[in-house]
Structure formats: C-alpha cells, structure tokens
C-alpha cells in the first residue's frame, strides 16, 4: 500500500487515466471507472489531466516533467484518493514526484498528493475488497506483472486475488512472470531491437501457457506485448493471443 492511504472505502475518488490509456486503450479506463461506480463510489475525472510526466523524467528532462507533474497535482487538489490504472504511472506519482520537487516550496502539496495515489488493483482488493460474480464462459488466462507495479508500488498478489474471485477463470502463470517485457517507455524506441527481443521472449512465455488472454495492469506493457504478438503472428508463429487490461477483463466478465 502506498503512503498513508486509508483502507476504508471513500465516497469519492479521483481517477487518473494515464496517457496511454487515454490515447490507445480508453476501454481499459472506462471499464475501471465502471467498476468503481458500480461499488457506489463517485468517480471524478478532471478533464484537464494529461500524463504523469514519466516519459520526460526518465529521459533526463526533469524540468519539463516537473511542469507536467505540477499541473496534475494542482488539478487533483481535493483530499480524495487518486486511483491509477497503471503501476508505472502510479509509481511515478507516488514515488518520484516528491524527489522531483525536493527543495521546492510546492513540495508539501506534492507530498500530500503522492500519499493519495493508489494503484487500481490495490484499491479494488485492499480498500474495496471487491466482490465479483463471474458471468463468463470458462477461460484460461495468464498474468503479466509490470515491473513498476511490483517494484515501485509493491503490487503483489492483488491482481491474482481478483482473478481468483472469478469462478470460471483459470490462471496459468508465466514461467518468468517477474521479467520485464521490454517496454521501458522511450527505451522501446531508443533500443528497439533489445526491447523487441525482450518482448519476443515474453510472447513465447505467454504462448507456452496455453492461455486465451494475457492480462496486465499496465497498458504500456500491453502495447509492447500486443504489437510484438501481432508481428509474431504474421511471422506465422501462432495465433494472436489477446492482451487486455485487467479492469476491462473484470468488467466484461461481471457485467453481462
């Protein structure tokens, strides 16, 4: 759990959609909002939000990242939890924002914000203790943990716990679940061949599980794995195995 986040169910939460979900995987964000609203929570989505700032930060442009971070902090100023459907963006906002504002008079506000950031699956399990009624057909899935969700946000068993609550879903774990898929933000375009080689191994690992769908809590990983998967299928190594954000999967399975 991040910061001093309360574990009692709040009546209102902020939702930070992340830029990749915004532009490439909006259904994941929409599903997450649906799940939260179904639990009777008022979800607020500040329309001025954009990106957590991680791309510039990781590339060595902290000033540009700071401006973007400040923009989000100012926007999410009410004392509500900030639910983030990405371990990576949550990690940036919870762990790196404070160091980005070290020595800045704005720091107390940043710290307050960072302490309210919580990754979606952690929120669903640890705060809401979400009950799920599976309405789908029996299916085998596998799970890809994103590096930042595990190693920055400390997401452990929560996503799998959610999947266990779906009675018709069988989880077949990856052999190298903890290994990076190769995305790494701009790493994927700075060193595309290495990045793709990592994705290639990940795809092979996913195929070996025999799962029908690969789930993750991070759309950066899904974009990397998915586009490698498509190329892999074109190279005639097998069918495309669907990649899906866990929020979208949970919503599909339980809303029907």
């Amino acid at each position: 759990m991040s910061g001093s986040m309360a574990t009692t169910k709040p009546s209102t939460v902020y939702f930070f959609g992340t830029c990749i979900i915004d532009l490439v995987y909006p259904q994941a964000g929409l599903s997450a909002v649906n799940l939260l609203e179904r639990e009777g929570i008022r979800v607020v989505f500040p329309q001025g939000q954009s990106c957590c700032g991680q791309p510039a930060y990781n590339c060595g442009y902290p000033d540009e990242a700071r401006a973007v971070a400040r923009h989000q902090v100012e926007l999410f100023h009410q004392p509500w939890p900030v639910v983030v459907p990405s371990g990576s963006c949550a990690g940036m906002m919870a762990k790196h924002y404070p160091s980005l504002f070290k020595g800045d008079p704005f720091l107390p506000r940043v710290e307050n914000f960072s302490s309210r950031v919580i990754e979606l699956t952690q929120f669903l399990v640890n705060v809401l203790d979400l009950k799920l009624e599976d309405k789908g057909e029996p299916v085998k899935v596998t799970w890809h943990s994103s590096c930042h969700s595990m190693r920055e946000m400390g997401v452990g068993d929560e996503p799998k716990e959610l999947l266990r609550r779906l009675s018709n879903v069988e989880l077949q774990e990856l052999k190298r679940e903890r290994e990076c898929c190769g995305f790494g933000g701009t790493f994927s375009v700075r060193h595309p061949e290495i990045s793709a080689a990592m994705a290639e191994d990940k795809v092979a690992d996913i195929r070996a599980t025999g799962a029908k769908t690969v789930l993750s809590g991070d759309c950066g990983c899904l974009m990397n794995i998915g586009t490698r998967m498509e190329a892999d299928a074109k190279e005639a190594r097998g069918e495309v195995i669907d990649g899906k954000h866990i929020a979208e999967f949970l919503w599909e399975r339980t809303n029907g």
Binding site: D22, V33, V44
Partner: peptide, 28 residues
C-alpha cells in the same frame, strides 16, 4: 523505431478516454 526488431504499429483509439468519460457524464 518502435517497429524495428519486429513489432506492429500501435493504433490510436477513435475516441480518447477524455472523450468517453465526458460523454458518459463522469464529473470533472
């Protein structure tokens, strides 16, 4: 660069999340 080494191009969604949530009436 993304496509080097073997990946297809990511596709942008027709409607962004901003748009979907505004249409849905999620408060700002």
């Amino acid at each position: 660069d993304w496509k080097k080494g073997g990946r297809t191009r990511p596709r942008f969604a027709k409607k962004s999340l901003h748009r979907l949530l505004r249409d849905k009436g999620v408060p700002d």
